[in-house]
Design a protein around this nucleic acid. Sequence first.
RNA 1: GCAGGAAUGGCGGAGUGGUCAAUCGCGGCAGACUGUAAAUCUGCUCCCUACGGGGUUCAUUGGUUCAAAUCCAAUUUCCUGCA
Length: 343
Amino acid sequence: MELKDFGKNFVFMPDATRGAVRSLTTEQLKETGTEVLVTNTLHLMMNPGEENIKKLGGIKKFMNWDGMVLTDSGGFQVFSLIHSKKWKGTVHENGATFKSPTTGDLYELTPEKSIDMQMAINSDILVTLDDCREAVLERDEAETSVRRTIDWAKRCRKHFDEVYGGTKETGKLLSCVVQGANYLDLRKKCAEELSEIGFDGYNFGGFVVTEGSELVLEEMRAVVENTPKDKFKYAMGVGKPSDIRIVAELGYKVFDTVLVTRNARHGTLYSKDIDGEVLRIKNAEYLLDERPIDSTCDCYTCRNFSRAYVHHMFRVNEMTGLTLATIHNLRYYQNLIGDLNKV
RNA sequence: GCAGGAAUGGCGGAGUGGUCAAUCGCGGCAGACUGUAAAUCUGCUCCCUACGGGGUUCAUUGGUUCAAAUCCAAUUUCCUGCA
């Protein structure tokens, strides 16, 4: 795939938050059929840091990845770590200021800083810094989130264009994030104003499911309907296989979720052989099950190992179990995406 | 043989008269996870239960007491010294 074609077909991007898909080598990741990965601005900003990653030649050279890279702006981390007070810090009109819980070092993530960092990473597809919040919000909070998200997107656009020369000079794409929580009019307003500024892609931001794990389909539709038809739509954080199939019908082409790899590490594997698509490999029923995880799967794990073996790896706490499980789940997702592209 | 010490639920190990069906860890059985502080977290884990409770437990047997895993005696097993 070439960058200009990004988002024309369905694409699933695993999360390599800190420069690796957990438990996999770059080679193993490539073998799952992955073409694009997501890595994280805020995490890489703290380690190895902007100057160091620049010296190391960017993330692709660093991790020997010859595919594409999308960088998340850090907006979600500002939400999950700072808004929720897991880390000490504040969110303000200029971005977020926070302390590393491990070193105590003070960091500031502004829209401009986020772009600088994403450039240092040498990402292909950048994302504007947004003010991410919960799925359901008080009206005034949602309004603040939308106002800031638009303002920060504007600043990111300006910084990317003026300092780096935009797509023309860099060959990179810049996408934005649409906020608005559960208010359809705010989703619409945010989508329209961001469209007016103009971006290469429009990402559905915030939480994609409610507490009851229901997709927020109306909000997602509002974003698709109020953004340019010829630009890619990225459903950030979507999702379970069944959720991807549903959201794909709305017009979203780009997906990422931590579920696929986290579930793998927690022993929840996907299989077409099982009702509900989910197989919990740690469960006792797989102790002597010599079938592959998924009889229809062509991944390294399914071609070479039984459910019993992967079960055993988990039971005795061998790291290889995590790797085999992650390889399988990722391949399952890439096959799912492949099926969507065939239709 | 003599002198000390110890025996607790699958395992390790708390508890040393009532609030003890008995802390906790491991193991076991399930579940959760949606732009990753996550190889994490949650629940259950003596028996029965209409989930309100009910029934049997702390090596064995007997005793003291209103009340015993906890105190006493004997027995069995194990550990440590001395012979």
